[in-house]
């Protein structure tokens, strides 16, 4: 009986969430699918990600090779599944870098204001003024093509966006009485920033996160495609697309198409989730029961 009620409640909650933002529900489902794929690809994929099948080069999709095979005789289905791991390995850590760098800068700029704010904001503006893909290209090719470099560069380039969102939130609440109360109570500045301001300013940045993760995936794929990111034979989707691009003219479209579709679904999933989060956190759209 108790189980039945809790099931009704969970179903009801989902239904209400669906009414408030269907994008969030669909987006989260797609992202969940991505995470599951990354976790389970080792168990469900029929071959190894870099396993070469000498007798099966550039085969069309079939029962044995759902997405066909590539020019090296590797199974495209397996490699697309393993690509989910790279997607996660890029999206999560670069998001972490964005937040870890951007949010404190935003807090400091917003709280101190004046010269500190001016200098920080100008520096971040300069960084934003560069076309970000070209900046990423330049930095990654200069620092070396490893996963860590790609992640750090993507994270740093995007950090100003988070700094800006948090800064404007901080400016809107820094004159409130609860901040004054925190000062009067004798909080050191770091506690005012991270204990009092942060939890009250993070909503906008949190809603932004999935959108920027989608962006990180796109940039990483772009870098790999132009050959400065993660390199074949690693099964990163951008690298797979680059690998497959040369076969498109000769008609073996499946080598590039399937990783392309996977990339689109993942980016779409993160974007939907982000849009949904913004719908859910926007006070103007807040429907109270």
């Amino acid at each position: 009986m108790a189980i039945a009620i809790s099931e009704i409640r969970a179903g009801d909650r989902l239904a209400r969430l669906w009414r408030r933002s269907s994008s969030f529900v669909v987006g989260s489902a797609l992202v969940a699918l991505l995470v599951l794929t990354a976790l389970l690809c080792g168990f469900v994929s029929p071959y190894g990600p870099t396993q070469v099948l000498p007798n099966a080069i550039l085969q069309t999709p079939s029962a044995a090779h759902w997405f066909g095979t590539d020019g090296n005789g590797m199974d495209v289905f397996t490699r697309v599944l393993y690509g989910a791991r790279y997607a996660i390995a890029i999206a999560l850590p670069s998001a972490f870098v964005m937040v870890a760098v951007g949010v404190p800068l935003g807090l400091i700029a917003g709280y101190y204001g004046g010269v500190v704010d001016e200098v920080l904001t100008r520096m971040l503006d300069v960084l934003r003024a560069f076309p970000s893909i070209i900046l990423a290209l330049a930095v990654v090719s200069a620092t070396g093509q490893s996963l860590i470099n790609v992640v750090v560069v993507i994270g740093l380039i995007d950090a100003p966006i988070f700094a800006r969102v948090v800064r404007s939130e901080v400016i809107s609440i820094r004159r409130s009485d609860f901040v004054a109360s925190a000062v009067v109570t004798g909080n050191p500045t770091w506690r005012i920033l991270f204990v009092h301001l942060l939890p009250n300013t993070i909503k906008g940045a949190a809603a932004l996160l999935p959108l920027r993760m989608a962006w990180a995936l796109r940039v990483s794929a772009t870098l790999a495609f132009v050959g400065v990111g993660i390199q074949a034979p690693e099964p990163e989707w951008g690298a797979l697309i680059r690998q497959g691009a040369e076969y498109i003219i000769s008609g073996q479209h499946w080598v590039a198409m399937f990783p392309g579709i996977a990339l689109v679904i993942a980016v779409f999933g993160f974007n939907l989730m982000g849009d949904g989060l913004q719908e859910l956190t926007d006070p103007r759209l807040d429907v109270k029961k």
């Binding site: 409130s176 009485d177 609860f178 109360s181 009067v184 109570t185 004798g186």
Partner: peptide, 16 residues
């Protein structure tokens, strides 16, 4: 600070 404290007008606005 421990020796000089303050209570604000609106408790809704002055408590985190």
């Amino acid at each position: 600070r421990p020796a000089v404290q303050m209570v604000f007008q609106s408790p809704y606005a002055s408590l985190n």
